[in-house]
Design a binder for these strands. Structure first.
Length: 471
RNA sequence: CGGGGUGUGGCUCAGAUGGUAGAGCGCUUGGUUCGGGACCAAGAAGUCGCUGGUUCAAGUCCAGUCACUCCGACCA
């Protein structure tokens, strides 16, 4: 089998090669939609499991809303419908009969949740409602790429209603932090937390918060978002409750989402020219055992014994197929399995096994007796070093610009993010996009005062902003 | 939606000037191998993306269409 395209040569092609050859997904006969294969789906299941655990730990409950939204319902909130109308799929017929009202296939479920909240929230005693749903949504995209942008994608969408604006804002930030910690601790992907500019915020939100991560090619991927709707949707959908003082009040809402797109981030942050590299915490298989010269006496028995001992401790797999060992090494590297254990005749003599790390190919000789303690230890170190490597990569590609000239030349020559001061005007944001191809990624929570002046117009600066080219 | 590229066994591709469909890899079977993608032998596998046209004859020429892919604009 030939190698995958080198990422330095053609990053996009490298990405596609990895998705296909690591056996994560395949193209389907439906334009823009992909088949998520068992290995890719196992990855998603691990992401789901961990996120779901974190949602439950913060008091959320899972629900399920319908796939279809009546047109009249979608129309209720003006900004929302304007944002999504261009990319929804419509159902116009049921069997042979034309429907009296078109149904859209949900691009997101705010409107359905709102209608439901309007019917179940009556009193301050009914609040808050902290809901989440796991589902797929459809957006009629013009160009698609596996995981990064598909017409149908799997995600979770959290929807909550609260009594006060303060509570809604707290929830928005809480869930952004859940996402950020999940990315950093579980996926080993460093993120920048911040707020979206008005131009970039979600259709219908008063504030959108985001975590932005940097891919290997220096481009940004919005990895999770959390929206504060204030009482905008509540007013459009008439979601009111009676408070302790018998006053009728509008609720305050939030929504937040993370999708299978995050798998694209895992690929593009950790992957290398040998294929996928998975952080141990999310890897479907954490350790693969490869018997070497399995026809030699004692080898398969010992390999199975090691497999038995380790499978209670880590997600282990043993490959006893009749492939050449070299083929297996390459194959499991392609699939990003964090740790490989080789065991052959030479090891039997010395009562040892050879561990090989996926990230740096370091070989670690471990006495058989110590495997139970050493394997989890090495996995933990690997998880940690993947995060540190990604963090160094991101930090080393964040530049500062004090003038438009600097912004333009940096954007043209150096992949990565650029931070600069900004006056807050849409005009400057648009101009920067025109001149550099970069959009504002976020107004980070961690502000630095680089200067007093907007990088673009020279007027008084309001914020420091990260700019970047985005997926 | 604009611009470029590509559609031929599972995969990567070859098939000048139209004339009976090819290779390598993979797959199956048997044997030898086995510490970084092994070797030998035998086999199976294609209505040449789809529709129409030109022609005695189309993978090849023409028109249309669909899909994939890359680069822009729009978006999780």
């Amino acid at each position: 089998m030939e190698d995958i395209t080198s990422m330095d040569e053609d990053f996009s092609q490298w990405y596609t090669d990895v998705v296909l050859k690591a056996d994560l997904a395949d193209y389907s006969s439906v334009r823009g939609c992909m088949i998520i294969k068992p290995y890719g789906y196992a990855l998603w299941e691990n992401i789901q499991k961990e996120l779901d655990r974190r949602f439950k730990a913060t008091g959320h409950e899972n629900v399920y809303m319908p796939l279809f939204i009546p047109e009249s319902l979608l129309q209720k909130e003006k900004d929302h419908v304007e944002g999504f109308a261009p990319e929804v799929a419509w159902v116009t017929h049921g069997g042979e009969e034309k429907l009296t009202e078109r149904l859209c296939v949900r691009p997101t479920s705010e409107t359905l949740f709102c209608q439901h909240f309007a019917s179940v929230v009556k009193s301050y005693r009914d609040l808050p409602k902290l809901y989440n749903q796991w589902c797929s949504v459809v957006r009629w995209e013009k160009t698609t790429r596996p995981f990064l942008r598909t017409m149908e994608f799997l995600w979770q969408e959290g929807h909550t209603v609260h009594a006060t604006a303060e509570e809604a804002k707290e929830e928005t930030i809480r869930m952004l932090n859940v996402y950020a910690e999940f990315c950093e601790d579980f996926l080993a992907i460093p993120v920048i937390k911040g707020k979206k500019t008005d131009k970039e915020k979600f259709a219908g939100a008063i504030e959108t918060y985001t975590i932005e991560s940097m891919m290997h090619d220096g481009k940004a991927l919005q990895s999770g978002t959390s929206h504060n709707f204030g009482d905008k949707f509540a007013r459009a959908f008439n979601i009111q409750y009676t408070d302790r003082n018998n006053q009728l009040k509008y609720v305050h809402e939030t929504s937040w989402g993370m999708s299978t797109r995050i798998i694209g981030a895992v690929i593009m942050v950790h992957g290398d020219n040998n294929g996928l590299v998975l952080p141990p915490k999310v890897a479907p298989t954490q350790l693969v055992i490869i018997p070497v010269s399995p026809h030699k006496e004692g080898v398969p028995e010992k390999a199975r014994e090691v497999f038995q001992r380790l499978s209670g401790i880590v997600r282990a797999k043993i490959d006893e197929s009749d492939r050449m060992p070299g083929w297996k090494f390459a194959e499991y590297e392609m699939r990003g399995v964090p740790l490989r254990l080789e065991i052959g005749p030479r090891d039997l003599e010395k009562e040892q096994a050879v561990l090989v790390r996926r990230d740096n190919r370091e070989k670690i000789i471990v006495p058989l007796a110590e495997l139970e303690s050493r394997v989890p230890q090495v996995l933990e170190q690997l998880q940690q070093s993947l995060f540190e490597k990604a963090k160094r990569m991101m930090d080393s590609r964040i530049y500062t610009a004090g003038s438009m000239e600097e912004l333009e030349s940096t954007a043209a020559n150096l992949p990565g993010f650029i931070k600069s001061m900004w006056c807050g005007s849409r005009e400057c944001e648009d101009l920067i996009k025109d001149r550099t191809g970069m959009t504002s990624r976020c107004i980070p929570f961690e502000q630095e005062k680089l200067s007093d002046r907007c990088v673009c117009c020279g007027k008084e600066a309001k914020h420091m902003v990260y700019w970047g080219k985005a997926y």
